[in-house]
């Protein structure tokens, strides 16, 4: 049982948890404000990872320096998808159920296209690069520089987004739209502006997560799907559209995964993830912290 108290595990759980929280944030924003189920969300993480990979291997520029550019790139993909595919979907008067179903199909298609285009362009074989992988020993924990940086940046970005949502009028408008589309229109919120902003913010943050992941893990065109599943687990655990709940749930899932794998074996990792997914849906579909709002 000693391993449960190992600071090494604690550190790994924090890093993974922060990444899950970061990835789930974008999924939650896009679902919360528009009721779109983005099954391609993990593929944006993949695009961010590839962008970081090529930036580093071609120019030697650290992904950490390139983060703003990578975020803008994936945010741009979000804005393009919104403008071309989803603005029309949202403007047609549809029920929430219809929106959810249609978006699931559309995003499934987008996911397949993104994965295959990337596989064609850069081959399907996994890639990796070495960056900031010197090992430091602090308080009995062996940590690589890139993992420390991942944790710091993830926490900074999460804090930044929470402060933005809580204390600016734009952030308040996002929260308002998540709680009630009708009331948001009543008070004069420019709903389509908030929607495109949510796509940009959510996809931008996913790109940042991908860049961070690429420093420490192998990347491939098909790396995204497990992250999509993890993000869905997180937002269901945290309550759909509940941004703060999602962040807590992300950290929680990171802990569950790291500790469960440590106690059993890495082969159970994906079984665990899907198991939690199904389990939560069966036992507590409203999430641990409650939905912000129903349909």
């Amino acid at each position: 049982m000693d391993i449960l108290f190992s600071p090494q595990l604690l550190f790994s759980a924090l890093v993974l948890g922060a990444l899950y929280a970061l990835i789930a944030l974008g999924l939650n924003l896009v679902y919360g404000t528009m009721r779109l189920l983005n099954i391609a969300h993990g593929d944006l993480v993949m695009i961010g990872a590839y962008a970081a990979f090529w930036l580093f291997t071609l120019t030697g520029i650290s992904p950490l320096i390139g983060l703003p550019v990578i975020a803008v790139l994936t945010a741009g993909v979000g804005v393009a998808l919104y403008s071309v595919l989803f603005r029309g979907q949202l403007e047609g008067t549809q029920s929430v159920a219809q929106l959810e179903a249609n978006s699931l199909l559309l995003f499934f298609g987008i996911s397949v296209v993104l994965q295959n285009v990337m596989a064609l362009a850069f081959t399907a074989s996994p890639r990796a690069y070495r960056h900031l992988d010197d090992v430091y020993h602090v308080a009995g924990v062996a940590m690589t520089g890139n993992r420390v940086a991942t944790l710091l940046i993830a926490v900074l970005v999460l804090a930044g987004v929470v402060i933005f949502l809580k204390s600016t009028i734009y952030g308040l408008a996002v929260t308002a739209l998540i709680q009630s589309r009708d009331a948001a229109k009543v008070v004069g919120i420019n709903v389509s502006q908030v929607q495109v902003g949510s796509f940009a913010l959510g996809f931008g943050v996913a790109g940042i997560a991908g860049a961070l992941i690429s420093m420490a893990e192998q990347i491939s065109p098909f790396m995204g799907f497990p992250f999509t599943i993890a993000a869905f687990v997180v937002i269901i655990l945290g309550g759909l559209g509940n941004i703060a709940g999602g962040i807590i749930a992300g950290v929680l899932l990171g802990f569950i995964e790291i500790y469960a794998v440590a106690l059993t074996s890495a082969t159970y990792r994906s079984i665990l993830l899907y198991g939690i997914f199904v389990g939560v849906l069966l036992i507590r579909p409203q999430g641990l912290f409650g939905k912000t709002r129903g349909g």
Binding site: T175, A183, V187
Partner: peptide, 13 residues
């Protein structure tokens, strides 16, 4: 009203 927002946030929005 926005149920999960505070009174002041409702007014500000």
């Amino acid at each position: 009203v926005f149920p999960d927002m505070s009174v002041e946030e409702n007014l500000r929005i």
